[in-house]
Write a protein that binds this DNA or RNA. Sequence first.
DNA 1: GTTTTTTAAAATATCGATATTTATTGACAT
DNA 2: ATGTCAATAAATATCGATATTTTAAAAAAC
Lengths: 220, 220
Amino acid sequence: MNMMDNTNGGEASATRATYLSLRDMILTGELPAGEKLKIEQLRRMLDTGASPVREALSLLTSDMLVERIDQRGFRAAPASLANFEEILMLRCTLEDMALRQSIVRATSEWEERLVLSHHRMKRVVDTATFEDAHKDFHMTLLGNAASPMLERYCSQLYDLNIRYRNLAAGGANYQRRDIAFEHEEILDAAVRRDANAASAALLSHYRLTGAYLTTQLSGL
Amino acid sequence: MNMMDNTNGGEASATRATYLSLRDMILTGELPAGEKLKIEQLRRMLDTGASPVREALSLLTSDMLVERIDQRGFRAAPASLANFEEILMLRCTLEDMALRQSIVRATSEWEERLVLSHHRMKRVVDTATFEDAHKDFHMTLLGNAASPMLERYCSQLYDLNIRYRNLAAGGANYQRRDIAFEHEEILDAAVRRDANAASAALLSHYRLTGAYLTTQLSGL
DNA sequence: GTTTTTTAAAATATCGATATTTATTGACAT
DNA sequence: ATGTCAATAAATATCGATATTTTAAAAAAC
């Protein structure tokens, strides 16, 4: 969302720090889906005031990670198989559109960013930073579409999907070898500007992990 | 004692009342696109505290009606022709999907809600309540898709579009006769469960007004 | 033995004051 | 003139305290 572009190296506001912490806690499942989020409890946990917590929670509403009910506080967005499937469907539709637009507007400069991002993702070993690199690769792929809203939706949906991945496996490494190959397929197709192939590879990538996750999540 | 002097007759919280007011002020253009939104100024204007204003603004971020820059406050989302065209594109894609899903899941109960909503929209004369009825009709159309996120996106995009319509004409009545016919076309196709015809009619409806608005908005 | 009402506790929402940060102004040097 | 830099003004962000509402528990009524 629109707080993300704060690359300022100095001290961020308490609200922003709180926003990032809470976001991470929800994505990783440290704050379980559907859980009541009590201001006082979070305030202590993060050692900050009530105002930053409230404001951070209000902002997380944008990302559909938190639900707000008037006069009844906040809760972590609930998770369900139906919700996961909806996310998957929307991702496929919107990322297909974004990727095709990106490719239409392809330049060698974008191509280079893409190759670089892919390279960085491949070389990472640490699981924690892999997630960042992986998102960066996917967003670079879509980032040439010159459609800020579309990109925002895709980024949002990406994060929501990550949440389900964590929910399913606790971050288990589910055959990264296949996934590396799939990434190369997408990259190659994008670089040679073959929109149909790139889109097919991307969507297949999502649907494969989607099918895997669906089996894991049957207990929702 | 504080709630006694609350001029709104309803039961909602100050934050919610503020949210609704600000939302309306942005959609109607009373708060112009791109305008700096100063807490103190709004606080006085709406006769409430700073906390409800901040929280309402944070919530409006979800709707892409307000932008927040850390430590630099809030501003009404800027408007541009490119942004309008992006909204139009996303609407066409997402509403097409939602409408088709709605029709797949069609029931006589939905059919009845649709006819009723259409009837109410037709009979309204007052411009202000027409807007509500119009949105209700469009959302009923999509509301049978059983996709909460998709519906949320569509509702968001609908509002953003309204904003541009107000921006373009100050609410001028641009040939309502044609529009009434277009609505009947959509309704008829939906009721006879012809997804292709319904979608075509809906998208044509959007693209026609889109083209009209684009000419009006050339000064952005 | 339920259902309703009352009371007490917890949590949310809001206010008013203050601390931080950003924006503006005007003197001064180049 | 123009650009830098301090001093000042303005605005944002945050805190701590309080009011309001909701939730839970206990008591009373049917």
